[in-house]
Nucleic acid binder design. Structure first.
Length: 129
RNA sequence: GAAGUCGGCCGGACAGUCGCUGUGCGCGAAGCGCAUGGAGGAAAGUCCGGGCUCCACAGGGCAGGGUGCCAGGUAACGCCUGGGGGGCGCGAGCCCACGGAAAGUGCCACAGAAAACAUACCGCCGAUGGCCCGUCACCGGCGGGCACAGGUAAGGGUGAAAAGGUGCGGUAAGAGCGCACCGCGCGGGUGGCAACAUGCCGCGGCACGGUAAACCCCACCCGGAGCAAGACCAAAUAGGGGAGCAAUGGCGUGGCCCGCGCUGCUCCCGGGUAGGUCGCUGGAGGUGCACGGUGACGUGCAUCCUAGAGGAAUGACUGUCCUCGACAGAACCCGGCUUACAGGCUGGCUUCCCCU
């Protein structure tokens, strides 16, 4: 099948690959490169680690129901995990938009794949402050 | 078999691959391997009640809030069980904020004459009194008329509601005015722990409209905040307190001394931010049996351990099958209530139909 993650034998998604503290989120929110489509906005900022890290932001504005928000977060994490090897080591914050609540799993997965490819293609810019 | 009614239960299944995470064990240990566990009946709304934690607190009262037929169950409740009363249904069964309106206050729209110590629009009567007419020779009597005083609440009409109902008597017409039956109220007796009931006895012609999710009265209950509660460990930076050391200094103020202020190094102490650890899941716990109880529930014995994350795990993909899958995601923990829910399984009871 056309699952890139499967063909590479899959990757783990350890705690190292997550943004865990408010300060880390703040760092990304301040001056990051932006990517996005109708389902997501992705903020990216170079980090000092050897691994890309992911943070999620799915607000209640996206959907009032916790089940829907959980689904979106799981899909993003799953996609990120599959592409971890190919993604440059930067900190990302994926912000979901309201249309994502109505999209199917397949639609969201494909949309994310396109974004990772764009990010892979674009060079990391130093955002001086 | 059909319709209905009251409960109980389930909430796609199986396999593979790749992940996340708790626990146990092992190892060449910031990890890895193996084994094993990982959302719900509502996890939801946050509407009640508790546990737990911190703060406050002698006792009592006021204010405020809540509950509201009775009895029981419970840690507690606004929950549950049983009972009483009222209403609905042929029935099983369902529904009810269901204490007090002979403490006080308020309100009762529209309509209607009148909405509460009753009143009198139409109507009825007009016995009694008044006026007029007739009759007898007069007083007076008798007869008739008027509807003036007055008497009525039977009938009409209004309204959610109009001061018991029906019948007979009675009357000028009427009226519990009188009587019978029904209804109502009060007192007593009887039954019941009680709410309450009453084919019992006596009394009262009947006097009591509704509204307390209106104020209010009565009885009972309630301190506040919440796991971001709270406890512990604790960098960096700034600052506080104490001790010691060197010089007996240095700088500022001042003409100078004293004095006052600032200043070095080392160690200790207390508070405490970032961050971390605990709180964090074994509990008013589940299951089975026995016993007590109409029941809710309680007691005893045996047995089981069944999520514990934290930017927040419990998922993704693929395949097969079916009746193609609803509402929906734990966040300290329990007991309830309420609301949402594709489809399916199952038990009791009721009514009707058919067969034997």
């Amino acid at each position: 099948m056309g699952q890139p993650g499967d063909s590479e034998g899959g990757r783990g998604y350890p705690r190292r690959a997550r943004l865990t503290r408010p300060a880390q989120f703040q760092r990304v929110f301040r001056g990051a490169q932006r990517y996005g489509d109708r389902y997501f906005t992705i903020l990216a900022k170079p980090n000092d680690e050897t691994l890309a890290r992911l943070g999620l932001a799915v607000s209640k504005k996206v959907s009032g129901r916790a089940v829907v928000r959980n689904r979106i977060k799981r899909l993003v994490r799953e996609s990120f995990r599959h592409h971890l090897a190919a993604i440059p080591s930067r900190d990302f914050v994926v912000i979901a938009k309201p249309p994502a609540a109505k999209a199917s799993n397949r639609e969201l997965t494909q949309a994310l794949e396109r974004q990772w490819q764009r990010i892979q293609a674009s060079p990391a810019q130093r955002c001086e402050r």
